[in-house]
C-alpha cells in the first residue's frame, strides 16, 4: 500500500519535470525573452548586460535546473505585462477557478449519477429516452453556446441571475470565496452549470453503461435469487461496483474541467485562472503562461493520485491481500 503510493508519487515527479521542461522551453525559446522585456530604445550593450545578468547565456541544463529550483522555492518569476510576481497573480485567481470547477463537478454528480442509475434500470422507459435525447443535445452544443444561451434566458430575458463576474465574495485567509454569500451563489450558478453539462452527460452515460453491465453479473443475479430487497440490490450492490471505473473517468475529467474552464470563464467574465491565461496570451505574457501550465499539470497529477487512493478505499481487493 505504502509502496503503491510512493511509486505513484515517484511517477508524478517525472510528469511534473516533463511539464516544467515544456514550460521552460516556452519561456526560453518562444521568441527572445530580452526583446520582449526591453523596448526599442534599449541599447545592444544594455541588452547583452541584461542577458548576462539573467543568466540566459548559461548552458541549457544550468538554466533548466535554475528554473526548476526557483519553482520549487515558490519563485515563479515576474509577469511581463503587470511586473507583478506571477505567484501572486495565479494564487489570487486559483480560488475562483477551483470553486467553479468543484461546484460544476458536484452538480454533474448530483444529477448525473441518479440519472445514470435510473436510465440503466429502466432502459425502455419514456423518461429514459427523453433524458438520453436531452443530454445528447447537451454535449453536441459547444460550451460557449450553452453559456450564451443561459445568459440570454436567465440573465437577459428573465433577469434572475447576474451574467458576469463573481458577485459577492468573502475573504477567508488568502482565499476569496463566493460560497458564503447568496449573491456569490447567484453568480456562480450559470457558469457552473455551463461548465458541468459535458461532465454531467459523460457521468450519466458512463454510470448507465457500467450499471447495465453490472446488473448482468453473476453476483447481482445471485443477490436477486436470494431475494435481497431491490433498493439495496440497486444501490448497495450494483452502484458500488459501478463506481470503480466511473471514478477514474470522473477524476481524469475533473482535471479537464479545471483546465478547460477557459471558455466558460471568458463567456461569463469569471475572474479565474482561465481568464488570466487568455489575457496572458493576448499580451504574450510567457512567464504567466508557463506557470499556468505547471499549475494545471499539478492539479491533474494530484487528482489522479486521489483517484488511486479512492480505488483502494472502495475496493477491498486492493486493500486486503489474500490470506490463503
Amino acid at each position: 500500500m505504502v509502496y503503491f503510493i510512493l511509486k505513484r508519487m515517484f511517477q508524478s515527479v517525472f510528469v511534473m519535470l516533463a511539464v516544467a521542461f515544456l514550460a521552460f522551453s516556452l519561456f526560453r525559446f518562444v521568441g527572445d525573452p530580452i526583446t520582449q522585456m526591453t523596448g526599442v530604445e534599449t541599447s545592444v550593450a544594455d541588452q547583452e548586460r541584461l542577458r548576462e545578468e539573467l543568466g540566459l547565456n548559461d548552458p541549457f541544463v544550468y538554466q533548466f535546473a535554475r528554473f526548476t529550483g526557483d519553482m520549487l522555492k515558490g519563485d515563479f518569476g515576474f509577469s511581463y505585462r503587470t511586473r507583478q510576481p506571477v505567484a501572486d497573480m495565479i494564487s489570487s485567481r486559483i480560488p475562483a477557478t477551483l470553486e467553479l470547477g468543484v461546484v460544476a463537478l458536484i452538480i454533474s454528480l448530483l444529477v448525473g449519477v441518479p440519472a445514470g442509475v435510473y436510465t440503466a434500470l429502466k432502459p425502455r422507459g419514456v423518461l429514459t429516452q427523453a433524458i438520453l435525447m436531452t443530454t445528447l443535445v447537451g454535449v453536441s452544443i459547444p460550451t460557449f453556446v450553452i453559456g450564451i444561451m443561459l445568459i440570454f434566458i436567465f440573465g437577459v430575458q428573465l433577469g434572475w441571475l447576474p451574467t458576469f463576474g463573481r458577485g459577492g465574495t468573502v475573504q477567508i485567509g488568502g482565499w476569496e470565496s463566493s460560497l458564503f454569500m447568496i449573491d456569490g451563489w447567484r453568480a456562480l450558478l450559470l457558469p457552473a452549470i455551463t461548465l458541468g453539462v459535458y461532465q454531467l452527460t459523460l457521468t450519466m452515460r458512463l454510470v448507465r453503461a457500467e450499471m447495465m453491465e453490472v446488473m448482468r453479473t453473476d453476483y447481482i443475479r445471485f443477490a436477486m435469487a436470494r431475494g435481497v430487497p431491490m433498493r439495496r440490490l440497486h444501490y448497495k450492490h450494483a452502484l458500488a461496483n459501478t463506481m470503480v471505473p466511473v471514478i477514474t473517468i470522473i477524476g481524469l475529467q475533473f482535471g479537464g474541467v479545471i483546465a478547460f474552464s477557459i471558455v466558460t470563464e471568458s463567456v461569463f467574465q469569471w475572474p479565474g485562472m482561465g481568464l488570466l491565461f487568455l489575457e496572458s496570451i493576448r499580451f504574450v505574457d510567457i512567464p504567466v503562461m508557463g506557470v499556468y501550465l505547471v499549475v494545471i499539470a499539478f492539479f491533474f497529477v494530484l487528482v489522479n493520485l486521489i483517484v488511486d487512493l479512492l480505488y483502494v478505499a472502495i475496493d477491498p481487493r486492493l486493500r486486503i491481500k489474500d490470506v490463503s
Partner: peptide, 25 residues
C-alpha cells in the same frame, strides 16, 4: 416472486469467483 426468492427457492451458480459481491464482506 421477489419475496419468495431466497425465502422458498434459492439458487447456486457455477462460478464461485463471480457469484459473490467483491465489495462486501
Amino acid at each position: 416472486a421477489h419475496v419468495m426468492r431466497g425465502d422458498r427457492i434459492s439458487m447456486i451458480f457455477q462460478d464461485p469467483q463471480t457469484s459473490l459481491n467483491p465489495l462486501m464482506t
